[in-house]
Design a binder for these strands. Sequence first.
DNA 1: AACCAGCGTTAGTCACACTAACGTTATCGG
DNA 2: CCGATAACGTTAGTGTGACTAACGCTGGTT
Lengths: 161, 161
Amino acid sequence: MTGAETEDTPDGSALKTPDRLRRRASRLLSQLSTRSDKLITEGLAAQADARKWHYAVLASLQDFGPGSQAALSERTGIYRSDMVGVLNELTERDLVERAPDPADRRRNIITISARGRRRLHRLDKVLDDLHDELLAPLNPAERDQFVQLLTRLLDHHTRNP
Amino acid sequence: MTGAETEDTPDGSALKTPDRLRRRASRLLSQLSTRSDKLITEGLAAQADARKWHYAVLASLQDFGPGSQAALSERTGIYRSDMVGVLNELTERDLVERAPDPADRRRNIITISARGRRRLHRLDKVLDDLHDELLAPLNPAERDQFVQLLTRLLDHHTRNP
DNA sequence: AACCAGCGTTAGTCACACTAACGTTATCGG
DNA sequence: CCGATAACGTTAGTGTGACTAACGCTGGTT
């Protein structure tokens, strides 16, 4: 058996992280998630002056139509307390409109604007590129598999919290 | 076509999250990672009065022998500024010993204790159970696949940061 | 009229990843 | 030998993400 027993780094030094650590799915998840988060956050900021929440809200509005802030919270997973700030940013940029609901004066109705729709298209493209970078080592079939596995896991833990 | 067009929740209400959002690997990663983190953190606290960092440090000491705090930082990925607190907790519990290095008085040499080794075994078992819960929807082959995909992605982004 | 529930909002908590700076100690070039 | 540079452990602090608590307002219920 010739080759790497444990694993090698480019500079030739042996890898230092114990295997039982490297193999734990929880650890892989959290480490990869931080990298991914940084990649996406920085990419969106640099290429579109946007944050990921913007995408979530705009996509939800585009695909499901206008809604109250509470509805958007449910759709996107953003807490309603944080939704306030996100919508402030989006209205500042004229990407959505926040208007009181005449039928229920507790509610605001959030609508996506034409500019918001354009921005959404742009964000979709930027995100496509970023995900290409994120998933670079995987071929298309593996990417599908990966997404599918993640989805099944997340669904399971969403239903059984 | 009868059945779920988009998807159903147990209570019959249509799912609200747009597909383009649900399919993004970055989003799946971050959501699953938070669930996973919570599961592990709470599980370790409840079943072993421990934190995940404890496991990382103990495992590293067991598998690679004693080392300086800086070395442990590299092995585990914990920042050296945070390592201080972790080692305080571990020495408090008598799981490791922190002694000055006579050969280099800048360094501390950290050694795992007998109690630390026992604790590590316990943590390994607890973590096995928790990962069983985390990966419940996947069969063994799929779990391997999942870990393998995660590993490849993480390795790629670790080498090309 | 009294009550509870939902809405948007503000403020604050907690943990994690990460940076900055400091005193101490080694090491290396002149 | 000396002075610069750098690694070590440590303290303090930043920024962000997930989440909680509480408030005033409005709506539906009885």
